[in-house]
Nucleic acid binder design. Structure first.
Lengths: 213, 213
DNA sequence: GAACGTATGTTACTAGCGGTAACACCAGAG
DNA sequence: CTCTGGTGTTACCGCTAGTAACATACGTTC
């Protein structure tokens, strides 16, 4: 139907789009989420209006950019989560995969977690939307895995979703803090978090007041 | 020494500062974290330079503003955490306190969690700093409580810090998601999260492939 | 080959932001 | 009376996201 003239012209458009995304990627990797449209255009060797023609606005560009990294990270996480191993091993492998990713490319990670858009337009008080889409997607995917593989009794679906988002948040916050302070090795962090998920908090004994009392 | 002339003039300065903070509070409550300095100044009935004289820059104003709410929330959380009750009850009370707070004033919560500064200046790649200070403070405080009250054996301090930040992150992410989708009541959410912390994830059985197999 | 649509690319602009310089005013202290 | 230190202004800077207007090259279609 309309695939006739789409072949050549739109193909070059798609190629340009990919080139622009790669240029934007380079700039974001260098400047962080504050990368300006001007800087990205300059890196790509062009001027702003072209970026706007391709991506609409800054949010569009950032969404396209984020999608690539998010998809890549989610693929890694799925692989770790689907490995044939004990549950605890899989959990530790998944945690380690995530932490290794944010450790390797903190700028990308920061970009994904902090849209930092502003988006002066529709500023409704929809608190649920501002958070990074990556966190939401990870939470939903983990919820699905939990629901599929664990026998949680009644209310399992809802429980799985709460746990999915909760565990992802735990991983994210701990990773963020760890990346800033580096108080221990990655392996130790993974073990500590897995211990937490394995109920060591509930199992721990109360501390006695003082020795000999 | 210098308390002589400080009495009258600086007192009025402090009063103005408080008034400005309250005006800023109103605007942030209405417009969210994107509230502009112009808007805040207008709400206070003045112009921008005065704000800058009092708070240095936007970050300073926001920090001062955040400190009030953060302190208030932390006080509530400490109270819940220090109540004389079983550990599980205390944990549930603390979770519920936090969730009730973000439920009651989502705009404030959003502001605290999303500085969304930009702060075009020093854009070093210090990933550890961009996250909301509230999360860090909650994590550190919880870590302290855990370390003080639980007997965790060797490496307890480090373990407590990981757990502190991890649990806070779990609470935050789950709360953020819950606030957006409202998939269940607050009490159910609290119970699900406490169940997670109590090791129900590790205790759950694997799901069998299908019935009759 | 001519006409057209669609991509590419430009310069020049708007509106708003955070932030600042320069200036005026008014109250209390010496 | 003068000096200091607060309050307040207008007018500006440099930056940002985003847009309008215009020129040009290429591929498709008649």
């Amino acid at each position: 139907m309309d695939t006739t003239q789409r072949t050549e012209q739109q193909r070059s458009a798609d190629r340009r789009r990919r080139e622009l995304l790669e240029a934007a990627d380079r700039v974001v990797l260098r400047d962080g989420p504050q990368a300006s449209m001007n800087a990205i255009a300059a890196e790509a060797g062009i001027t702003k209006p072209i970026l706007y023609r391709h991506f609409g606005d800054k949010g569009g560009l950032y969404a396209a950019l984020a999608k690539r990294h998010t998809d890549a990270l989610l693929d890694s996480l799925r692989a770790a989560l689907d490995a044939p191993a004990e549950r605890r091993e899989r959990v530790e492998a998944t945690l380690d995969t995530y932490l290794a990713a944010i450790e390797a490319r903190p700028q990308v990670y920061r970009f994904l977690m902090h849209p930092s858009d502003g988006s002066a337009g529709e500023q409704g008080f929809d608190v649920g939307k501002h958070s990074a889409p990556l966190l939401r997607r990870m939470g939903e995917e983990l919820a699905q895995v939990i629901e599929d593989r664990l026998d949680l009794g009644p209310g399992s679906q809802q429980l799985a979703r709460v746990w999915g988002h909760g565990i992802v948040g735990m991983m994210h916050a701990a990773g963020d803090w760890w990346l800033g302070e580096r108080p221990c090795s990655r392996a130790e962090l993974v073990r500590s978090l897995a211990d937490l998920l394995w109920g060591r908090l509930a199992a721990a004994g109360d501390k006695v007041g003082g020795p000999g009392f």
